[in-house]
Simulated assay, not measured.
Amino acid sequence: MMLSKNEVKYIQSLYHKKQRQQEGLFIAEGPKLVNELLTSDFTINTIYATEQWQANNSAKQVEIITITEQELARISNLQSPNQVLAIVKQQVANTAANFSNGLSLVLDGIQDPGNLGTIIRIADWFGITQIICSLDTVELYNPKVIQSTMGSFLRTKLWYQDLATTLTTAQVPVFGALLAGKSIYQIQKPTAGILVIGSEGNGISNDLLPFISHPVTIPRIGGAESLNAAVATGIIVSHLIV
């Protein structure tokens, strides 16, 4: 049974933020990501899968619609669609972040979906389980963010909230990635703390600077003007945690 035009149109509409928020849904693609979702606490509404995927996988209690590779290409957002696409219910964090143990990330105005996805993967790699995002940071359920996390969003909680309010109540050291900071190679590792990473173009917002108790920097040896936000996050986190 072929996908109707209305079905295709509806799935394609979920690539737009307004529709995702209205429906409370998001799209995940590819065998690895869909298989991880099937074993997570996320609820999958519908799976659209080729016969090839279904031959090697099962999903009890989830509606599976068999589609051809041509149909998958019509509803996919990827350059190389891969066997399966799932429509999944969004989750809303219903608990407050707890800063009393370990390192947490605070992201201020990260706009690039690939950067956010990579930062979530970095957090997952280093065992960071919570990330607090400014209200103007790119949305977690953007398809490019979801794909670039490679499943790490399933193990890392994200909150979107006013960062000044968040940092006002934090009772732990607040590290901030700044050009005029102390070298990360001279920083003592905290038992608990927050690392603030600013936007790709503007850095940390001026209204957040008063909350930063420990400005840190990655010493520059060569001639590059700046570092990608995700790369900088990885380097700093590796010195604050390991």
Rank of each mutant, 00 (worst) to 15 (best):
M1E: 05
S4L: 13
K5N: 11
K5R: 12
V8R: 03
Y10L: 08
I11E: 01
I11Y: 01
Q12G: 01
Q12I: 07
L14G: 06
L14A: 06
Y15M: 01
K18G: 04
K18F: 02
G24C: 08
I27R: 04
A28H: 14
G30W: 01
P31E: 10
L33D: 06
N35A: 12
E36F: 08
D41N: 14
T43D: 03
T43K: 08
Y48S: 00
Y48Q: 03
Q52K: 14
N56D: 02
S58R: 04
S58T: 11
Q61Y: 06
E63N: 10
E63T: 15
I64V: 15
I64E: 02
I64K: 10
T66F: 04
E69I: 02
Q70N: 11
E71Q: 11
A73E: 00
S76L: 00
S76W: 02
N77M: 12
N77Q: 13
L85M: 08
I87W: 01
V88W: 00
K89F: 11
Q90W: 04
V92M: 13
N94L: 13
N94R: 15
T95H: 10
A97V: 14
N98G: 05
N98H: 13
F99H: 02
S100Q: 12
N101I: 13
S104G: 15
L105E: 00
V106G: 03
V106E: 04
G109I: 01
I110N: 00
Q111D: 09
Q111F: 06
D112V: 03
P113E: 08
P113I: 06
G114M: 12
G114E: 11
N115D: 07
I122K: 13
I122S: 14
D124M: 07
F126D: 03
G127S: 04
I128E: 04
T129S: 07
T129H: 13
Q130L: 12
S134C: 01
E139N: 12
L140D: 02
K144E: 05
I146A: 03
Q147E: 02
M150K: 08
G151S: 05
G151Q: 00
F153M: 15
R155M: 10
R155T: 06
T156K: 07
T156V: 15
T156L: 10
W159E: 00
Y160N: 02
Q161D: 11
Q161T: 07
D162P: 02
A164D: 10
A164S: 12
T166N: 05
A170H: 06
A170P: 03
V174I: 15
G176K: 06
G176M: 09
L179C: 01
S183A: 12
Y185W: 14
Q186T: 13
I187N: 03
Q188E: 15
P190Y: 11
A192C: 15
A192V: 11
L195E: 10
G198Y: 05
S199V: 11
S199H: 10
S199N: 15
E200M: 07
G201H: 14
N202Q: 11
N202S: 13
G203C: 09
I204Q: 06
I204S: 10
N206M: 09
D207M: 06
L208P: 09
P210K: 09
P210H: 11
S213I: 01
V216D: 08
T217Y: 01
P219K: 09
P219N: 08
S226T: 14
A229Y: 03
A230D: 02
V231N: 14
T233E: 05
I235W: 14
I236M: 00
I236P: 00
H239V: 05
V242E: 12
V242Q: 10
